[in-house]
Design a protein around this nucleic acid. Structure first.
Lengths: 153, 153
DNA sequence: TTAAGTGCAAATATTTTGCTGTCAC
DNA sequence: GTGACAGCAAAATATTTGCACTTAA
């Protein structure tokens, strides 16, 4: 049961080709992993999974590809309250922004779409005349399950 | 012209004493700097400034003090879209949450209080039964000034 | 007195850079 | 063919840990 809506396979590749970016074997593998991971992936996990598709993917290429995707506004970078260390997580930039609720106890991340967030974006544009490129809402705390769970880990 | 509302001097120290945390010369200096910096400070800047108050503050003590403050829920950690590198920024946890608008061109960070954010918190609690410990809203993009500035850096 | 805190050195974690060779177009 | 990309090694950045010494309460 994937928790996140995913994106059609080949979406990122198509976007990049449309922008005239070169497509390599390594990039294809990395893009495929980002698209099909039904969760937020960090660079190390991304590397592991991409290597299963193509043994010849290097760690540096993962970072460079992520940088390129950020530059083109195709992925969002999160840190999910650094629940598991200082690394970043990546997701395909969705059409509509959403919130991330990270549970400090079980580590699960829930997502929430909200009309209020859409309206908040409108307020930022209107009142601050700020041109939004990315927006990141991360909430840390205890999920419903962990609150009722008493002391179970 | 400080852009942020600050907190009464001695606030953090009082909070910690009330929690039975020991107060040292080094901690006093670090707390003072966090309270009086009219902006978000990162660990390195914090160290520099704390050293001006007390030469004997070590980098490690800064990190340990920040960790302790986080644990007690007295500061919030931000990364302001990593505009200037991978480090974190800290601010005294405010009574009311606010948004941070980070301009990718000039690097300035604006804050915005919004009733919509308050309502969003309410929605999270009600619909997701999520117990919020921290909430972080960071927006990257172009501020009003940089949009009109044409090509000036 | 003594548990908690500190400094110093070293380690770790994450990401970036330089350079040389390779490949997509 | 050539400019963009990849791999490898090494560096840079940011933060954490181990341990012996110091200090607040």
């Amino acid at each position: 049961m994937p928790e996140r809506a995913t994106v059609p396979e080949g979406y990122l590749e198509a976007q990049l080709l449309a922008k005239g970016v070169r497509m390599t074997r390594q990039r294809k593998a990395i893009l495929r992993v980002i698209e099909t991971s039904g969760e937020h992936v960090d660079a190390v996990t991304l590397l592991e999974r991409a290597r299963k598709l193509d043994r010849k993917v290097d760690r540096v290429t993962v970072y460079r590809t992520l940088g390129m995707l950020k530059k083109h506004g195709l992925v969002d970078e999160l840190d999910l309250m650094h629940l598991h260390g200082g690394q970043h997580y990546y997701e395909v930039k969705p059409g509509r922004h959403h919130l991330h609720l990270a549970c400090r106890k079980c580590g699960r991340v829930e997502e929430l779409h909200s009309e209020l967030l859409d309206r908040l974006e409108g307020q930022i544009k209107r009142e601050k005349r700020f041109l939004i490129a990315d927006i990141r809402v991360e909430v840390g705390g205890l999920c419903a399950r962990c609150q009722s769970d008493g002391a179970k880990p």
